[in-house]
């Protein structure tokens, strides 16, 4: 189970994300900076919620500010350079 891929865009495995959390990552951006999870073409649309679940034990309260997630940036989809 430990080598299951979590971020399929960047090929980041569960063990690498757990390692990042042990090294002090407390939110998705910290895991991202250490492992590149969420930096591929889908921009974390697939893995970000999984990474958040790995970080959050127990889950956060309703209404709590969502700083734990990475911030969306434009372009939010893969875009042709000619369209930029």
């Amino acid at each position: 189970m430990n080598d299951v891929i979590i971020c399929r865009c960047e090929g980041v495995r569960l063990s690498e994300i757990e390692q990042a959390i042990r090294e002090g990552a407390s939110a998705v951006p910290g895991v991202k900076k250490r492992t590149r999870a969420g930096m591929g073409p889908c921009q974390g649309r697939v893995c970000q919620r999984v990474v958040l679940q790995l970080l959050q034990q127990p889950p956060s309260e309703a209404g709590e500010s969502p700083d734990a997630l990475q911030r969306s940036r434009s372009p939010v989809r893969p875009t042709l350079l000619g369209d930029l």
Binding site: M1, D3, V4, I5, L14, V46, C47, R49, V50
Partner: peptide
């Protein structure tokens, strides 16, 4: 939501 399991890719 994704649900990683060995072999899910």
């Amino acid at each position: 939501r994704a649900l990683p399991v060995p072999g899910w890719t």
